[in-house]
Amino acid sequence: MIAYVLRRVLLLLPIMLVAGSVTFALLHVIPGDPAAVMLGPEATPEQVAALRERLGLDEPLLAQYPRWLSRLARLDLGTSIFLDKPVTAAIRERIVPTLQLTLYALLIAVAVGIPAGVVAALHQDRLLDRALMLFAISGTAIADFFLAILLILLFSVTLRWLPSGGYTPFSDHPLQHLASMTLPALALGLSLAGLPARLVRATLLDVLREDFIRTAAAKGLMRETIAVQHALRNALLPAVTVLGYALGDLLGGAVVVETVFGLPGMGQLVVNSIARRDFPVIQGVVMVFAAIYLLTNLLVDVLYVYLDPRVRYAGR
């Protein structure tokens, strides 16, 4: 087990290197000049040239790559061109809203998806089942930027219950924080809820057929009680696993949702950095996203081994 984990961790390094190098190469063919973006539409060429020089943008690619690598080895991601601070500091500021957003979205996905899956399974093939499953697919089928604006129109403009955007840190004002995060989390979470709902339903149906459930039923227990007490525990494992893998998608979805709701998270940071050509930040965020994704996957795999004794990682 420990050897397996160690090997997996070691394998992360070449993967990170691939992800980093791909980004590095990609960024250097992107047209556009961060200096020109910073100076605006009527800046003179001399002005731009002066700023380029200060920012060290004129160095050739071949000189930058090895230096980037050696800095990366020391976990130094460089300095943001635009924000005028180390990339690690910028990421540290931004990671909190994104983690909060994804966490709340996951909570919503689980809170909506798992009960929906259980109820659907218990009402298998009946109208409620069909309706719930159609609802589950709907979530995945709607474009999230559109869902987001519909939520704003309903809850902010018409009902005036929640703010339409902006961010309040939890430590500043917990209640306002939750109010400002509710709509973004809903927009992201609802599009994800279909995944656990479908999984829980399918697995639950499987489990309900198992012998130990039949035994429990024979003992006279209610079907609902059985489902919740016995079957759900068995069914949760795959659902949790899938949500672990879904983290990559959640981060991607966060990009769109943060843009609509104006949350100062990693998604906006990277989208705006692409627009401003703030190369060190893009590079850094990609590395962090990749690391989060890979570590979560590793964690999920390890958890799987731990929770499901049938699985043994021999080879690979």
Binding site: F145, I149, I152, P163, S164, G165, T259, V260
Partner: peptide
């Protein structure tokens, strides 16, 4: 001064009083 890049969200935010 709050950056709100999405135009529809900007309009909705004004109407909502945000």
């Amino acid at each position: 001064f709050i950056p709100v890049p999405d135009e529809a969200a900007r309009v909705a935010g004004l109407r909502a009083g945000t």
